[in-house]
Amino acid sequence: MSDTSASPGSSGRRPVVTPTRVVAAFCLIVPFVAMLWVGSYAKVEPDFIGIPFFYWYQMLWVPISAVLTSVAYVIVRREQRARKEGGSA
C-alpha cells in the first residue's frame, strides 16, 4: 500500500506561504471579487462613449485581469526558480 497523504511527485514537504504567494493570491482574487460584487456596478450611469457603466466596467476588467494574472504568474515563477537554485546549491 502506498501513502496517499502526499501528492504524486512531491517530496513530502508542506506548501509554504510566503509574502510572494500572498501577493500572487491577492492579484488573482481581486478581479474575482470585483466581478462577484454586482451591486457595485449594476447601474447605467456614468456612460462612456454611449456605453452604459455596467458593460464598460466589466470590459475594463478584462485587461486588468490579464495584467494581474501575468503579474501573479511571473512572481510565482521567479520564486520557484530562486527556490530551485537555492535548493540545489
Score class of each variant (00 low, 15 high):
76 V>K: 01
61 W>M: 11
85 E>M: 12
68 L>M: 15
58 Q>V: 10
37 W>S: 02
34 A>S: 14
23 V>D: 00
23 V>S: 01
43 K>G: 14
82 A>T: 13
60 L>E: 04
33 V>R: 04
34 A>M: 15
27 C>I: 13
48 F>M: 11
15 P>I: 14
10 S>G: 09
23 V>T: 11
68 L>Y: 09
67 V>T: 10
15 P>G: 11
36 L>E: 03
22 V>C: 05
3 D>I: 15
59 M>T: 04
49 I>Q: 03
58 Q>F: 06
71 V>D: 02
30 V>F: 08
64 I>C: 05
77 R>F: 08
69 T>V: 13
18 T>E: 04
44 V>W: 06
77 R>E: 11
59 M>F: 15
72 A>T: 08
17 V>H: 06
47 D>F: 05
35 M>S: 01
32 F>L: 13
61 W>G: 01
38 V>T: 07
31 P>V: 14
36 L>C: 05
70 S>I: 12
28 L>C: 09
42 A>M: 07
72 A>P: 01
53 F>L: 04
58 Q>A: 11
83 R>D: 14
30 V>C: 01
19 P>A: 03
21 R>Y: 07
78 R>C: 09
51 I>M: 09
86 G>W: 10
57 Y>E: 01
74 V>H: 06
19 P>R: 09
55 Y>W: 14
21 R>C: 03
21 R>D: 02
54 F>S: 00
83 R>N: 09
38 V>E: 02
77 R>T: 08
30 V>L: 08
87 G>R: 10
88 S>A: 13
83 R>F: 13
43 K>N: 12
15 P>E: 05
39 G>Y: 07
67 V>N: 02
66 A>H: 06
24 A>I: 08
85 E>A: 15
69 T>P: 00
64 I>T: 09
61 W>Y: 10
83 R>V: 15
27 C>F: 13
71 V>R: 06
51 I>P: 01
35 M>I: 13
24 A>E: 02
18 T>K: 03
62 V>Y: 08
26 F>E: 01
22 V>S: 02
10 S>N: 12
3 D>H: 14
54 F>T: 01
68 L>K: 11
55 Y>R: 04
34 A>Y: 07
23 V>Q: 00
65 S>F: 12
20 T>F: 00
38 V>M: 04
10 S>K: 08
50 G>F: 13
50 G>K: 07
74 V>I: 14
28 L>H: 05
72 A>M: 08
84 K>M: 12
36 L>Y: 05
16 V>W: 06
26 F>K: 03
34 A>E: 09
81 R>W: 04
36 L>G: 06
83 R>E: 15
25 A>G: 13
57 Y>S: 02
7 S>A: 15
50 G>A: 07
87 G>L: 10
